[in-house]
């Protein structure tokens, strides 16, 4: 329809460090892909490492138009996207390609109301996060008593509390110094970010039990999106709805390499026996029940969101360990 569409230079903003796996294998290739498919009409400038604002600001950076596109973490602004927290329930997901499939499906069914002002390109729960500690190995719930753990916020904060440790909410960029100086004893995050923020240097132990992870997504400024012609819009939709699949970055295959890399850096990975695992899961389920009760009290369809999340996970052979089984009975 518009054969003479002007060249667009799209700003992409993320808090991931410029040399991180995220930027090198997902965001830069994604923007390159847009350029390629649009025959060079959709150019880009990459603003990584929070060059346009701190981590929690990233939704607003896009929403207001400082950047055209960007990757944001919903969990870092507690209370702002209450239902979207459903994507960060404890679940075993080991690839962002899979996470985005689940997140997008849940978004379509129950989360649309929380993102009226921006163009949501994709939503995902991040890859399963674990507890990483500086000097004390965590092999049971008892080991967690009194530990100060950096939390990414949201359910992870509630899980840390439910396990008897002390959550401290802070952006990832501050964690290395905080671990080094003892502001925290450990942290909860996913393995890619352990690598991206070089935390394998300060963490000696990782306890392999999913605490879920933050809810994140790729969004685009509404005005910037509407400025594009329909062909360009289509390219954006195709490439960005699951950028992980398109670029092959941070997929399930990559995940295995990352875990090996973390081990090779001298971090001891601790597996828990099934009986111990179930003890943790039961506490997580209680967190889900309390969370649903709280939000339903405010008139938000939280139970429906949890059911939808569970359904989409089951469909893909993924276990939502924080799912209270009695919900299925109606």
């Amino acid at each position: 329809e518009n054969a003479f569409a002007a060249d667009q230079n799209l700003r992409f903003s993320t808090w991931h460090p410029p040399v991180s796996r995220e930027v090198k294998t997902v965001w830069t290739p994604m923007m390159e892909e847009l350029k390629k498919r649009s025959n060079g009409k959709l150019g880009y400038s990459m603003y990584a490492g929070g060059a346009l604002g701190k981590g929690p600001d990233h939704f607003d950076i896009v929403n207001r138009g400082m950047s055209d596109l960007g990757y944001f973490t919903a969990t870092w602004t507690p209370g702002r996207f209450p239902l979207t927290d459903v994507l960060s329930l404890a679940v075993w997901v080991d690839g962002k390609d899979l996470a985005a499939d689940i997140g997008n499906a849940v978004y379509q069914k129950v989360l649309k109301d929380e993102f009226k002002d921006v163009k949501v390109l994709e939503l995902n729960g991040c890859i399963q996060s674990f507890i990483w500690t500086k000097s004390k190995p965590v092999r049971s719930i008892e080991d967690l008593k009194g530990l100060k753990l950096r939390s990414p916020g949201g359910h992870q904060t509630n899980y840390i509390k439910a396990l008897g440790a002390e959550p401290i909410f802070m952006p990832l960029g501050d964690v290395y110094m905080a671990m080094e100086t003892g502001t925290v004893d450990g942290l909860v995050t996913c393995s890619p970010l352990v690598l991206a923020f070089k935390l394998a240097e300060v963490a000696k132990y990782g306890t392999v039990l999913t605490l879920g992870c933050v809810s994140e997504g790729t969004v685009m400024n509404m005005k910037s999106y509407n400025k594009l012609d329909s062909g360009q819009k289509k390219i954006i939709d195709e490439v960005c709805t699951n950028p992980f699949k398109v670029t092959g970055g941070l997929t399930r295959d990559v995940y295995k390499q990352m875990i090996a890399e973390i081990s090779s850096k001298g971090v001891e990975l601790i597996e828990l026996p099934d009986q111990e695992k179930n003890k943790w899961y039961e506490r997580f389920r209680q967190v889900t029940r309390d969370w649903v009760k709280g939000l339903e009290g405010k008139g938000l369809p939280a139970k429906k969101a949890v059911l939808t999340m569970n359904e989409e996970c089951e469909k893909r052979g993924v276990k939502l360990v924080a799912f209270p089984p009695e919900y299925l009975k109606g």
């Binding site: 460090p17 410029p18 040399v19 490492g49 960029g173 290395y176 110094m177 070089k198 240097e201």
Partner: peptide, 11 residues
């Protein structure tokens, strides 16, 4: 800390 994160060097 910042330099290490930006260059993949050991902090």
């Amino acid at each position: 800390v910042i330099f290490g994160m930006l260059t993949e060097q050991s902090i």
